[in-house]
Amino acid sequence: MSKPADPLPSRWPRLSPLAFALTMAALALVIASVGQVAPTPGQLVDGGPSLVRLVNRMSPPNLDPAFLTRIFWRIVETFQIAIAGAAIGIALSLPIAWFAARGVGPLGNVGAFLSKAFISFLRTVPDLVWALLFVATVGLGAVAGTMTIVVDTIGFCGRFFAEAIEDSEKEPQEAISAIGGNRLSILFGAILPEVMPSFVNTSLFALEKAVRSSVVLGLVGAGGIGQELKAAFDLFQYRNASTIILVIFLIVLGMEWATDRLRRKVQ
């Protein structure tokens, strides 16, 4: 007697009642949110003419030499905030990531957990909130912006550096331990050379992110080109604003191009 044929598997995956309920709840949440805060077609149609009027008031961009000179120095300040903040942040991220790496760092599992929690805290608070805090503590200007970028970079690099350290090849580490190396020897002798491309990659992303952040930090008074943009909108100087927006676009584009090239070189 031949064996009965096995039934064809179901075309659709079977959901448990709980999974089905959760899926429906998620869908309901999306639909409710879109219904309450997304623009309606009517609002889009009504807003169209206003947008056209605003674009007309923004054109042509202001190319007055005196204004461009002022913008140029603001751009220099923006870059300084980004570069100084990212450099200090990356340098501080290295030891913090080592402390946070489970099974590798010198502080044990509890120390690693606490270090990771600290990094998560720095990352989860948005950069504009940090900027408001630093403006309140050190006053308006570039220093508050730099401090914001430092904290933001530690939150970003600390996490990725720690993950790279945890994922690094274990065999060379064991070899150095067998030779008699201590934790510091393992870090500098085996781990850092291994994870260096990943660190450089992450650092370049951090620099790119720092430039983008430093552009908007001025909106809350933390220095850089953002401060000029806010002033332009506050004073209805829309031609100035369009120039600044174009310059920001070129800066971010140039930064992405440069870091992409550097990343390819590192790989």
């Binding site: 060379p172 070899a175 050379p193 291994e194």
Partner: peptide, 8 residues
Amino acid sequence: KHCLVRRR
């Protein structure tokens, strides 16, 4: 496995 640090 030789366990060398490859990038050094």
